[in-house]
Simulated assay, not measured.
Amino acid sequence: MPEEISLICCLAVESKYKTIAELPQWAWTNFGMDCVGFVSTYLIALGQFKKMLKYIPKYKVVADVATSIDDIYYDNAILWANVEGGNVKVRPNPGNKSHIAIIECWEQYGSSFYVAQSAGSKKGVDYDRVYEIVQEPKSTKRDKAYWKIRQKGTYSTSKVVITKSVPLFAAGD
C-alpha cells in the first residue's frame, strides 16, 4: 500500500538508515508493485475494472478461459497454474509461485505476445517481455484447459491459464 511505503521511507530516514538523497534509489530497488496489483491497476486504467481484484484465481471466474488462439486479445490475463490429474488449478496468491501478467500486444504470426507485468521481486514493471505459445489447450473444458508458454529466448516452459478478454467488472475481493 502507498501508505506503508511512505511509512517505511520515513522510518528509513528518521532512523538514519538512509539519507533523503539515497531514498529514491533505495526505494526503487526495494519496493516493487506485485503482479496482481499491477494487473488490477492496469485493468482499472483501461476502464475494465472499477476496483482492485486481489485474488489471482478469481480472474479465471471473471473472464472465463481462452481455449483457442481466436480467444486471445490485448487485455487477456495470464495466470500461472499447476496441472494435477488432468485438472488445472491457478496458483493462489500470496506465494505458491503464483503470478499474473497481462497480454499487451498479440501477434498471431509466430504465436507470440508481448506481456506487461510487474513483480516486487523483479524490481519494477516489464512491458517488453515476449512469450511464445508452445502448446495450445488440448481440452475446451475450463477446468482442464491450459497453455504451455515460454519466454522468448529460453527453453523453460510454464503451464498457464489464459483468460478471455476481461469484461467490464466491478471488481473487489
Score class of each variant (00 low, 15 high):
Met1Ala: 10
Pro2Cys: 06
Glu3Asp: 07
Glu3Leu: 09
Glu4Gly: 07
Ile5Gln: 14
Ser6Gly: 06
Ser6Pro: 01
Leu7Glu: 04
Ile8Tyr: 15
Cys9Gly: 11
Cys9Tyr: 08
Cys9Ala: 15
Cys10Arg: 11
Leu11Ser: 02
Ala12Glu: 05
Val13His: 02
Glu14Tyr: 10
Ser15Ala: 00
Ser15Trp: 04
Lys18Ala: 06
Thr19Met: 02
Ile20Val: 13
Ile20Asn: 05
Ile20Gln: 12
Ile20Ala: 01
Ala21Thr: 14
Gln25Cys: 07
Gln25Gly: 06
Trp28Glu: 15
Trp28Ala: 11
Trp28Cys: 08
Thr29Gly: 09
Asn30Arg: 15
Asn30Ser: 08
Asn30Gly: 00
Gly32Tyr: 10
Asp34Ser: 11
Asp34Glu: 11
Asp34Lys: 11
Ser40Ala: 10
Thr41Phe: 03
Tyr42Leu: 02
Tyr42Gln: 05
Ile44Asn: 01
Ala45Gln: 14
Leu46Cys: 08
Gln48Ser: 15
Gln48Arg: 14
Phe49Val: 15
Lys50Trp: 04
Met52Cys: 05
Leu53Thr: 14
Tyr55Ala: 06
Pro57Tyr: 02
Lys58Met: 12
Tyr59Arg: 01
Tyr59Leu: 12
Tyr59His: 07
Val61Asp: 15
Val61Glu: 11
Val61Lys: 06
Val61Gln: 07
Val62Glu: 02
Asp64Asn: 10
Val65His: 08
Ser68Val: 02
Asp70Thr: 06
Asp70Phe: 07
Asp70Ala: 14
Asp70Gln: 13
Ala77Tyr: 03
Ile78Phe: 03
Leu79Glu: 10
Trp80Glu: 02
Ala81Thr: 14
Asn82Pro: 00
Val83Thr: 08
Glu84Ser: 14
Gly85Val: 05
Gly86Lys: 11
Asn87Ile: 15
Asn87Cys: 13
Asn87Ser: 00
Val88Glu: 03
Lys89Ser: 09
Arg91Tyr: 06
Pro92Ser: 08
Pro92Lys: 07
Pro92Val: 11
Asn93Phe: 06
Gly95Gln: 03
Asn96Val: 01
Lys97Asp: 11
His99Gly: 00
Ile100Ala: 10
Ile102Gln: 02
Glu104Ser: 06
Trp106Cys: 00
Glu107Met: 09
Gly110Phe: 09
Gly110Ile: 01
Ser112Arg: 11
Phe113Asn: 01
Tyr114Ile: 10
Val115Trp: 01
Val115Tyr: 01
Gly120Met: 09
Gly120Thr: 15
Gly120Pro: 00
Gly124Ile: 10
Gly124Ser: 04
Val125Thr: 05
Arg129Val: 02
Val130Asn: 04
Tyr131Gly: 14
Glu132Lys: 12
Ile133Leu: 07
Gln135Tyr: 03
Glu136Asn: 04
Lys138Asn: 15
Thr140Trp: 10
Lys141Asn: 13
Lys141Ile: 13
Arg142Pro: 08
Ala145Cys: 05
Ala145Asn: 04
Ala145Arg: 00
Trp147Asn: 07
Gln151Tyr: 09
Thr154Val: 11
Tyr155Ile: 05
Ser156Val: 10
Val160Phe: 02
Val161Lys: 04
Val161Tyr: 03
Ile162Val: 13
Ile162Trp: 05
Thr163Pro: 10
Leu168Ile: 10
Ala170Met: 03
Ala171Trp: 05
Gly172Thr: 07
Gly172Phe: 04
Asp173Cys: 07
